[in-house]
Design a protein around this nucleic acid. Structure first.
Lengths: 198, 198
DNA sequence: TCTTTTTTGTATCATTCACTACAAAAATCC
DNA sequence: GGATTTTTGTAGTGAATGATACAAAAAAGA
């Protein structure tokens, strides 16, 4: 009944690597979404049986929450440095959308795991989890813009979320990286044009 | 075993209105998505039992296809006149995105039924149906732009689909109409800035 | 009235889902 | 070595899903 790893305990040792299994689960959740990925799919991919799965991760939605945390940590955009005080706001916005285009069109799971998860997850618990994370991302972006002294933090945060959602969807629909990059640049210009001089 | 209506046949008459039931189903599919809406939900909403449901509509995915057709017919954007030869391309693009903002933020089912369905539908058959309809929409927009003599039809179609997808997602996340309208305007300006003089 | 046709309501079916009971296995602690 | 602890594999749980079998009911045609 240990969901957090305690290496070198007493009983029978695990036959699988929990971190590896988590990474595999994260990739699968990103690829197929929460509802389309069954616990049977997960246990088969990890190579374990249901009891081992539940002993290690608690339940499906808890594993999904862990997978989301891992995704944000490993594949999250670097909004922090993009919107650092040194760089002009225009450049920061363009950088975020370029990062998004690059991230969303790379790997075999296209699009943003959080954005796509927020739109597609039916399960109430999992849906609440992923949507709250998406809202947190919006707040983070808004606060970073506001911290620079901009009076358009809400508007620009709305716009960035809208554009990232659009880029994520287009990536998921198979649009290749080069074409997605152009869209990101165009979208950034739309925002830049509406930035008021401070 | 009649999925198309034959008024005044021989046998026992229907106790419900097929068109009303279809409209109800369309609204529910738009609101909850294909997978989250069960046949039991549908029969309860219509007020019939499963055998009547299957006799009238065939099966769940066939009803979904009908609902999509109805949605496109009733709530589809007027791309045709927005991109008519008389209006400047810049205005046409702005018009499409303004129409999208208005449509996506109105009613109680937010966002575009086709765009959101394409992203969230897990069922293979229903997913293929809605995604093929989304692709058809893209082709229609691209062809309408190309018919004007623009050499940027592919690019602008990509961009419009991306922007509509973003607007649909933001609407689904609860962004109110006034704020969505501003985003649509900004997004349109991003495209307009990249239109090459003919 | 009698036959034919179609819809209706009841009562399921088989499948898939997330999740678990249970006992054997494999490690550490004393 | 014996007790304790934890994981393992087998097997199965109850709930929900899309879809149906079947016979009674209600209409039209003869």
């Amino acid at each position: 009944m240990n969901d957090t790893k305690k290496i070198g305990g007493r009983g029978r040792p695990r036959t699988f690597d929990r971190d590896e299994a988590l990474a595999k689960a994260q990739a699968l959740f990103h690829l197929k979404g929460y509802d389309a990925l069954s616990v049977a799919d997960l246990t088969a991919a990890i190579g374990i049986n249901p009891p081992s799965f539940y002993a290690a991760f608690g339940n499906k939605v808890a594993l999904y929450a862990e997978a989301l945390r891992l995704y944000e940590h490993e594949a999250g955009l670097d909004v922090e440095s993009a919107l650092a005080e040194g760089v002009p706001l225009e450049e920061g916005i363009a950088s975020i959308l370029q990062q998004a285009a690059d991230a969303y069109a790379s790997g075999d799971a296209k699009g943003c795991m959080v954005i796509e998860g927020a739109r597609s997850t039916v399960d109430p618990e999992a849906g609440a989890e992923v949507r709250s994370r998406l809202e947190a991302s919006r707040r983070f972006i808004r606060d970073r813009i506001a911290a620079r002294g901009s009076l358009q933090a809400e508007l620009l945060a709305d716009y960035l979320m809208m554009a990232m959602s659009g880029l994520s969807g287009s990536a998921r629909n198979g649009l290749p990286l080069d074409r997605l990059r152009v869209l990101a640049e165009m979208a950034a210009d739309g925002a830049i044009q509406h930035i008021e001089r401070k």
